[in-house]
């Protein structure tokens, strides 16, 4: 299946970590209507991946698997993890994370471009987790990426779109490249805003997994993403600095004494 078709069906992607239980996770996936879920090979499913019974539960949801290289700090680690993920999950899709700082989990753009070049040459469909930096984005596209995943804010921070102007500029510069907001989405309103700005999809994990009721929150994100996308397609009004009366004038009130109400 092509990414284009996947995005047409669902513009919400879910991460699968940190849920209270696999049952809650699969219920949340169903409630979100999401078509793609990310799975971390390194950490959550070590050893014989998923043979413990977790993997069949994810597969049963019917969502497409996007393995990631979460927690990798070097080109070598990320490339090795991607190759393992291809074997284990039987997909060429890989969400490429090369972390540059252990505290902020922000991507190392230099290592990211290098790893992307290697993996694209090996036939992977690379989804790079990057910043909103336009030049890095261009380098990733030159390396062979067909889609980009800029962050909204640091992973797990829930701060929304911290550099909305830069993200809008990125969208404007790359009108034909699928762009997916990857990290930092903390509330459905953040997701709706990203979609209104014309982003193609959002990926959410912590905001759903650690909600009081993850299944209800998954439904909330589904509606927010749909609303934001519809608004983008419908065309948003431009903001103005002054008021414009919006009540239609149907006649003039007759205020003479004795006039009919």
């Amino acid at each position: 299946m092509k990414l284009h078709d996947v995005l047409r069906d669902s513009r919400l992607m879910l991460g699968t970590a940190q849920y209270p239980s696999p049952r809650v996770l699969s219920d949340a996936i169903a409630a979100s209507g999401c078509g793609v879920v990310t799975v971390s090979l390194r950490r959550e499913i070590a050893g014989e991946p998923g043979a413990n019974g977790f993997w069949p539960l994810i597969k049963a949801t019917g969502a497409r698997i996007l393995p990631n290289t979460a927690g990798c700090h070097s080109v070598q680690e990320a490339v090795t993890t991607a190759r393992m993920a291809r074997e284990v999950f039987g997909t060429d899709w890989i969400k490429l994370e090369v972390i540059g700082n252990a505290d902020t989990l922000q991507p190392d753009p230099f290592a990211l471009v290098e790893a992307a070049r290697i993996l694209c040459a090996e036939g992977f469909a690379v989804f790079p987790y990057t910043t909103e930096d336009l030049i890095v984005a261009e380098r990733l596209l030159e390396a062979g990426c067909r889609v980009l995943m800029p962050w909204g804010a640091p992973i797990g921070s829930g701060r929304g779109l911290r550099h909305a102007d830069a993200l809008a500029a990125l969208r404007g510069h790359l009108p034909d490249v699928p762009l997916i907001i990857d990290a930092g989405i903390g509330a459905p309103s953040h997701a709706a805003l990203a979609m209104e700005m014309g982003y193609d999809a959002v990926l959410v994990n912590t905001a759903v997994a650690r909600a009081g009721d993850p299944v209800a929150m998954a439904r909330a994100f589904r509606h927010a993403v749909e609303a934001g996308r519809l608004a983008h397609e419908a065309g948003l009004m431009p903001p103005r600095d002054f008021a414009v009366p919006s009540t239609p004038v149907l006649g003039i009130a007759d205020l003479r004494p004795g006039a009919r109400a």
Partner: peptide, 11 residues
Amino acid sequence: MIETDATGPIT
């Protein structure tokens, strides 16, 4: 808490 049935020593 790791979703695996891998036994063996702590990593």
